[in-house]
């Protein structure tokens, strides 16, 4: 289900803005870095949320699709000398095809099989993908160096990287694109309807299987898009995408299922939070522990509150 922005969400935005201003004065680097990282988290989390919201499947292979996109970009670069920015279209399309194929071969057959089978099958897919990558490309880390990805600028005496602002741009573009798709197109309205009630959707003439196929393909394509822009800044190895599965799930859980705008906000909050923890002397390495601790608290409070209702 996809819900509209609530009062609570505005409160959250207000808190986030205040925190951002405070942090901006205290540690401007953390703020900028946090917004950049957080936007990236959001781009990756949005498609996971879409698959979870519409198909009801938690895709544990999410991060492995990201890895596939990274290697595809790397191969285009190292073999054919294609600049990552030019890989955007081919890699996004490739991942759409991979998504559709994986859906038709596996996910499609477990949609009615219950959550446990679904989790197992997506976990299996994640293992298959990472082992395949290992056997083809070994575990040796790879990289793609471009000069523009390390460009930086100085503003009001603060020096920061500019490339990663692309993440914010892409996050906003993907979010706005998805919202327009859901509200303004026939297929998008069908998707929205299927997310609320698949049986009701089929009764009004919506081809529910096609919507599932499309949503899965589109989501994996978005993952591909994200991977292309990460490549110039990350080291590429078989497990490179793996941590993003849990981060994405965490953001989806924090935002509340179906709240796409909330994912961008939660992503930025997570990004800033990580940057702040890392800026504290001796803090690096603790951000995941603290973050998942906070997440457990958030989910538990929500569960308790909903249980009371």
């Amino acid at each position: 289900m996809l819900a509209a922005a609530s009062k609570k969400q505005y409160l959250f935005i207000a808190l986030l803005v205040i925190a951002a201003i405070v942090i901006g004065f205290w540690e401007p680097h953390a703020l900028i870095y946090g917004i950049q990282r957080g936007s990236l988290y959001a781009v990756i989390a949005l498609p996971l949320a879409l698959i979870l919201g519409i198909l009801g499947v938690l895709n544990l292979a999410h991060g492995e699709f990201l890895t596939v996109g990274m290697y595809a970009t790397f191969v285009l670069f190292s073999r054919f000398g294609v600049d990552p920015m030019l890989s955007t279209v081919p890699v996004t399309l490739l991942l759409a095809v991979v998504g559709v194929a994986v859906y038709l071969l596996t996910i499609k057959h477990v949609l009615k099989a219950g959550h446990l089978s679904q989790l197992l099958i997506t976990f299996g897919i994640s293992l298959v993908i990472s082992e395949l990558i290992k056997s083809i490309y070994t575990t040796q880390p790879r990289g793609v160096f471009t000069t523009y990805s390390y460009s930086s600028t100085t503003l009001a005496g603060i020096r920061f990287g500019t490339y990663e602002f692309l993440y914010l741009l892409i996050a906003v573009a993907v979010l706005v694109g998805l919202q327009l798709f859901l509200k303004k197109t026939r297929l998008g309205q069908a998707t929205f309807a299927v997310g609320q009630n698949p049986r009701g959707a089929s009764i009004v003439g919506i081809n529910v299987s096609f919507v599932y196929l499309f949503v899965f393909g589109l989501s994996i394509a978005i993952v591909g898009l994200a991977s292309v822009f990460m490549v110039p800044r990350v080291s590429i190895f078989p497990g490179a995408g793996t941590p993003y599965t849990m981060k994405s799930f965490a953001l989806t859980a924090m935002a509340g299922l179906g709240n796409l705008n909330g994912i961008l906000l939660a992503g930025i909050a997570l990004g800033i939070f990580e940057a702040v923890v890392n800026a504290i002397p001796g803090g690096s390495g603790w951000s995941d522990v603290v973050f998942f601790g906070v997440l457990i608290l958030v989910i538990m409070t929500r569960a308790i509150r909903e249980g009371r209702r």
């Binding site: 049986r199 089929s202 081809n207």
Partner: peptide, 24 residues
């Protein structure tokens, strides 16, 4: 045939448990 094809063919059902779209 699948449900959506049957619906497009002209048979529409008012199900016992309604099957509406609650968030719309």
């Amino acid at each position: 045939q699948e449900t959506h094809t049957i619906a497009r063919g002209g048979i529409v059902v008012v199900p016992q448990n309604r099957e509406l779209f609650p968030a719309m």
